[in-house]
Design a binder for these strands. Structure first.
Length: 336
DNA sequence: AATGAAGGCAACCGCAGAAGG
DNA sequence: GCCTTCTGCGGTTGCCTTCAT
């Protein structure tokens, strides 16, 4: 226990490593192995603490390190694993050969986390954020769009709406509007994450248009797709460029991480996709994307989660509307 | 061209568990 | 069982580069 004293020693160099230091460290480790990190700097002729040497080696000098941009597969793996493991960067790194925990952590903090936030997802829980202010910009934009389209389609109804048909009707309309916005947000988010190249705005609009064409989701949030029939053709829903989720079979076998009931080994770590029906786990992001990819023939609400992770439960579990994600959330129930 | 802001990344800091005496 | 040391990990910082004005 306790802090390592090595970094308390004075006179040791800190900061960026020079090429000369790198070469010394590299040559020493290649020749002798790192052995004790504490004694390594002295033996290697480096004026650094062992900790600094270890970090430099593991994060930069190690020969098996893969450098360069993260592939989409790696991105998806990180998203999946983060939804399962949280900020366990070393555990995540173990599933990404050639990537260091530091690299993954940086990538998460600078890219993925921001993207999730922008899409209205909580980066820690991977769930859609339910706090009103987080979703406010999207809600405003989508509500405005919906009103405009409704007015264009039926000016009389729009006028009636604007005149106000009584507080009760208004509340009901607002509730219905919010309900359908929830569906829109989810389908928009699913579409957006499926194409990280930045066409999210266009997808939002298309998803909105598609949903508007099909009507509202069931206020009860049922699984009955008839409640949410939104015809989404291939042209309406841009094709998703996601590769199949990469964490599947080979890593399951090799590293003992199982994603669902299908694997069934004794060392199953997490039944991630048992989130619906008592499992309590979270619906991982790529599930939403998969829903967008494979099951958007209906809408963003009644789509069936079909994970490519081999979880049989996942393939049979319906993906509910948000109200079913959060049956006890007062913000949701207030609108039901 | 100059300057400030934002993004990206390498490295450091401090905590905690494991191991050994 | 306790203490010390070592190692690993996650969070944070600060520098460098790129972009926008």
């Amino acid at each position: 226990m306790g802090r390592s004293p090595c970094c308390d020693e004075s006179g040791l160099k800190k900061g960026p490593w020079t090429q000369e230091e790198d070469e010394k460290l590299l040559q020493y480790i290649q020749k002798n192995g790192h052995g004790s990190w504490r004694t390594l700097p002295r033996l290697a002729g480096l004026n650094r603490c062992g900790k600094s040497c270890r970090l430099r080696w593991t994060n930069y000098l190690r020969p098996d390190i893969k450098r360069g941009k993260f592939s989409q597969e790696e991105e998806q793996t990180i998203l999946h694993l983060h939804s399962v493991l949280g900020n366990k960067w070393s555990a995540i790194a173990a599933h990404l050969p050639g990537r260091t925990d530091n690299e993954i952590k940086n990538f998460w903090n600078t890219h993925l986390k921001k993207r999730l936030i922008q899409m209205g997802f909580d980066p820690m829980t991977h769930r859609p954020r339910t706090d009103f202010f987080a979703a406010l910009p999207q809600l405003i934009a989508l509500a405005a769009l919906r009103d405009q389209l409704a007015a264009a389609a039926d000016p009389a109804a729009s006028a009636h709406l604007q005149a106000g048909a009584g507080a009760g009707v208004d509340v009901a309309i607002q509730a219905a509007k919010f309900q359908y916005l929830q569906c829109l947000l989810q389908s928009a988010a699913a579409t957006t994450i499926a194409s990280p190249a930045g066409t999210g705005a266009a997808h939002d609009a298309e998803a909105a248009a598609a949903a508007l064409g099909g009507g509202l989701c069931s206020p009860q949030g049922t699984h009955d797709s008839a409640d949410c029939q939104v015809p989404v053709s291939g042209s309406q829903l841009p094709s998703c460029t996601f590769p199949e989720a990469p964490v599947g079979s080979e890593e399951e076998g090799d590293q003992g991480l199982s994603y669902g009931g299908g694997g069934g080994g004794a060392d199953d770590v997490v039944d991630v996709f048992a989130w619906h029906g008592g499992g309590g786990s979270l619906p991982p992001l790529a599930d939403l994307s998969d829903a967008a990819n494979n099951n958007m023939s209906g809408d963003g609400c009644s789509a069936t989660a079909s994970s490519s992770f081999g979880g049989t439960a996942a393939t049979s579990s319906p993906l509910p509307c948000w109200p079913e994600f959060f049956p006890d959330d007062p913000f949701i129930t207030d609108f039901l």
